[in-house]
């Protein structure tokens, strides 16, 4: 199992490297239209053929992978910061702050994730620049994805608060910020890291769902989700198997991330 996890982590790293390296190769321009070859089949010029606007599918796949695989961790960072502030800090403080945090977390968790995401994303401007749409999409994911990690962090912070070493540290008259920095954060770090890695594939999948519904990344910028919209053209689908390439890439990335983080759910 350890070898499988290592292999999955290496595969994910290789995919990140390939997608990042693709941006340095001029021939892989995701926005360039080849009007001579619109909707063409795979060839030496276009390894995965071209889409309905004559854009190279392979270049778009590289760019889409890069956007999804680099921005999902950024969203996870935002989410973890919020989870720490809303879950860990009140959990360590206890009292009214803890009760208020538990209520807020339960409230957010009671709203179905995709429903919440849909409402919030639809409320934000839809006619934005492609770069802004990418930022908005992943920011929304990060800002809304804190509840589940916050619940776990709160529980852990509560147990840390009641731990003997904290009582001992307090009895020595340690300053609160030093207590937090030297004793609390190091004890929460494994959970923060585990929750971070668990959130990344969830955010990639959520972005894909939003993009399929037309609320994700705007054209011409591709993401793994927006590339999947090509599957909507069902009638011409059977003729071109390359339309499934983003789906294969999504499955490989998400499964390798999930395998790599499996066993991290309950860190020691």
């Amino acid at each position: 199992m350890k070898r499988l996890r290592l292999a999955a982590a290496i595969l994910a790293c290789v995919l990140v490297l390939i997608s990042v390296a693709g941006s340095f190769v001029p021939r892989f321009d995701y926005a360039r239209q080849d009007r001579e070859h619109v909707g063409s089949r795979p060839s030496s010029g276009h390894w995965l053929g071209t889409d309905d606007l004559g854009r190279d599918r392979f270049a778009r796949l590289l760019q889409g992978t890069r956007i999804s695989i680099l921005l999902a961790p950024s969203a996870a960072v935002v989410s973890m910061l919020l989870a720490f502030a809303i879950g860990a800090v009140p959990g360590f403080a206890g009292g009214f702050a803890e009760r208020a945090a538990v209520t807020a977390i339960d409230l957010v968790l009671s709203i179905p994730w995709l429903f919440l995401l849909l409402i919030v994303r639809a409320m934000l401007p839809l006619n934005t620049s492609p770069a802004a749409s990418v930022t908005i999409t992943f920011l929304v994911l990060g800002l809304l994805g804190w509840a589940a990690p916050a619940r776990i962090l709160l529980a852990r912070a509560r147990s840390v608060r009641q731990a003997e070493f904290i009582i001992l540290a307090r009895s020595t008259g340690i300053a609160p910020y030093r207590l937090l920095y030297r004793h609390v954060i190091p004890n929460l770090r494994p959970i923060l890291l585990a929750q971070f890695w668990i959130s990344v594939p969830i955010f990639i999948l959520s972005e894909a769902n939003l993009s399929i519904l037309g609320l994700g990344v705007a054209e011409p910028l591709p993401s793994l989700g927006s590339l999947l919209r090509e599957l909507e053209t069902v009638l011409s689908l059977r003729a071109d198997i390359c339309r499934f390439a983003p789906l294969v890439m999504l499955v490989v990335i998400v499964s390798s991330l999930q395998i790599a983080v499996s066993g991290r759910e309950v860190p020691s």
């Binding site: 894909a208 769902n209 909507e232 789906l247 499955v251 999930q258």
Partner: peptide, 18 residues
Amino acid sequence: SGALLCLPAGVLALLAIL
């Protein structure tokens, strides 16, 4: 189970149509 966990609901819906 692993494969299904990696597929977004939207993709499964599109595949169902297909």
